[in-house]
């Protein structure tokens, strides 16, 4: 199952858990399953059906396109980090 690293500012919602293993084959499924276990998490990460614009998703250390549709494999390590400004400009 994918492993999600919980950002320090969200650990109040996970009783301090830093790393959580949840089922899911896409970021959407992973977040929904996180939400089932830790209500409130999804609202911090998503706006409706999209990742909040200020948040970047890394899978296995690689920056993804930041979409909840991103597929993840069973060994994936997922990080939610502040999106980098620095001139990024992309259609979404």
């Amino acid at each position: 199952m994918p492993t999600v690293a919980i950002p320090s500012l969200l650990r109040n919602l996970t009783s301090g858990e830093e790393s959580i293993t949840v089922p899911g084959t896409t970021i959407r499924e992973v977040i929904d399953n996180l939400e089932d276990r830790y209500p409130g998490l999804k609202a911090r990460l998503c706006e409706g059906d999209r990742i909040k614009p200020g948040i970047a998703i890394y899978v296995n250390g690689l920056l993804t396109r930041g979409s909840i549709l991103e597929r993840v494999d069973a060994e994936a390590e997922i990080h939610f980090l502040p999106a980098i400004g620095g001139g990024r400009s992309a259609p979404r």
């Binding site: 950002p7 320090s8 500012l9 609202a43 911090r44 909040k52 200020g54 948040i55 502040p82």
Partner: peptide, 21 residues
């Protein structure tokens, strides 16, 4: 001030707080 999706109640010049631990 926003902190990873959470917004403070009072206005401030601090737009956001981020943390890595």
């Amino acid at each position: 001030t926003t902190s990873l999706g959470e917004t403070a109640a009072e206005p401030s010049n601090v737009a956001s707080h981020i943390q890595h631990k």
